[in-house]
Simulated scan of single mutants.
Amino acid sequence: MEISPREAPSRWLTAGVPLLAALAALALAAIPLAFAGAPILEAYRQMFAGVFGSVFSFTEMLTRATPLVFTGLAAAIAFRARLWNIGAEGQLYLGAMAAVWIGSGLIDGPALLMIPLVLLAGFIAGGLGMLGPAVLRTRFGADEVVTSLLLNFIILIFVQMMLEGPLKDPMSLGWPQSEPMTDAATLPRLMGKMRLHAGFLLAIGTAIVAHVVMAMTVWGLKIRATGENAAAARHAGIPVRRLLLAVAFVSGGLAGLAGVSEVAGLKGYLTTDLSPGFGYTGIVVAMLAGLSPLGVVLAALYIASVFVGTDSMSRALGVSSFLADLTVSMSLICVLLGGFFSRFRLRRIRPEAAA
């Protein structure tokens, strides 16, 4: 067998890889389900009903997808420039901490002032969280995969320290959590008693803006050119170092908005268990989306459906909820394999040709 590159992968092939990867991952999930002794068809029916069976379950899926859109965008934009932001988890917590610091009473004002101020504070805090690894890369050649990943743990320890100190709620009975967000700094709910909040609309709007910027502006062209070939981009006059710093700040800021949406729209206060891994899952979302901002929305909805649907199936059939993590992992493996075969093909070499 011989591996040879495809001359020009078709758009249908490139666009179909994420969809096939998602379907393949769901199909492969039947294997651990079978080992667990669960009826396969009933398990998938419970998964589907757990997402689309009621208005409540559907809005829960949208709520779960909201931070994934932000962290998926953070990874997608950075990866476009070949800047490997693995620190979205820490940047999410920085954004949440800045939002709580501003929105829990430091500044008193109406919602028209407080909500934009909280969003801006979270964006800046998250952006600064990625700016450090970017400076280390552009200045000293340090690998941002390592520095941004290790910074996640440093930031989490810092958040724990703040929750035990200046940000601790004196009414929490010793529990390490921040003071609650004021009503003026809270994102409004979209549907009655449902948990779905305005952060979802903000995430969709951000994805649309990111698509326009990446596809229709000079800055987006510079990002794509740098990602394709940084040396050629530098030769063409693009200030690659400055561009990477700007991309790093925007990427971290988007991850910071994920933290803001969770504390200002859903939970109302900050704890160290705010995120079950949204920052890391955002990388899977970005890869499933093919680094497309609009594709990030669809990929986030898919991943959120897997998590919410598997939770429902777990309660109904007694199957481990860790199946959701397994399905997401298999989705990433499938999309990586699909991406490889969309760029390369396997050819069988005839014996006489080899001779």
Rank of each mutant, 00 (worst) to 15 (best):
Q160I: 13
K222H: 15
V55G: 12
T272A: 14
F341E: 01
G109D: 05
A21G: 10
G141C: 04
L288S: 06
V51R: 01
V118R: 04
S178R: 01
V100W: 10
P18Y: 00
I31N: 08
L26A: 15
L106N: 09
I303P: 02
Y302S: 14
G268Q: 09
L187V: 07
A142W: 01
S320R: 08
D108T: 13
W175L: 14
A289S: 14
G103Y: 05
L196D: 11
P293I: 06
G174L: 01
F52D: 05
G50H: 01
A203G: 01
I157H: 14
A142D: 02
L68N: 09
D183L: 13
V297P: 13
T327C: 12
I157G: 08
T147G: 07
T59M: 12
M194V: 12
A36N: 02
R139L: 12
P133W: 05
T138L: 06
G253V: 01
W12G: 14
I86T: 12
L337Y: 10
S314M: 01
S320I: 00
R11E: 13
G72Q: 11
A248Y: 06
V306C: 03
F344N: 14
L136G: 03
R315T: 09
A236Q: 08
A78R: 06
T206D: 11
A76Y: 12
W12C: 01
L19R: 01
V284G: 02
L346V: 15
L73Y: 06
S314A: 12
L266K: 08
T226W: 00
G95N: 06
I223A: 08
I107L: 15
L173R: 14
G50C: 03
L33K: 02
Q177P: 08
T147M: 04
T310G: 00
S331Q: 07
A36D: 07
V100H: 04
I107C: 06
S148D: 03
F153A: 10
A210S: 15
P133T: 09
G192Y: 07
V69C: 10
G103V: 13
V146H: 00
S329D: 00
L128H: 02
G50S: 07
I115L: 13
A76S: 15
G109F: 07
V247E: 11
A8C: 07
L202K: 02
I107M: 13
P351Q: 11
A355V: 15
L117S: 07
I303T: 05
G95R: 06
T66Y: 02
F35M: 13
E60Y: 02
S178F: 09
E179Y: 08
V285F: 07
R350D: 14
L201H: 03
R137S: 04
P5G: 09
G277F: 04
M330N: 01
L270V: 08
D108L: 10
A299I: 02
A225C: 12
S342G: 06
A30V: 13
L120A: 11
L62S: 06
M330L: 15
H235R: 13
G126F: 00
E144N: 07
A353D: 15
F344V: 14
A30N: 11
A185Y: 12
G318T: 06
Y280Q: 00
A185H: 06
A88E: 09
P39G: 00
F56C: 01
W219K: 07
Q46H: 08
I204K: 06
E262T: 03
A210K: 08
V328A: 15
A134T: 10
W175P: 02
M1L: 05
V145H: 11
P170M: 03
G268C: 07
F123G: 05
A81C: 14
L113E: 09
A43N: 09
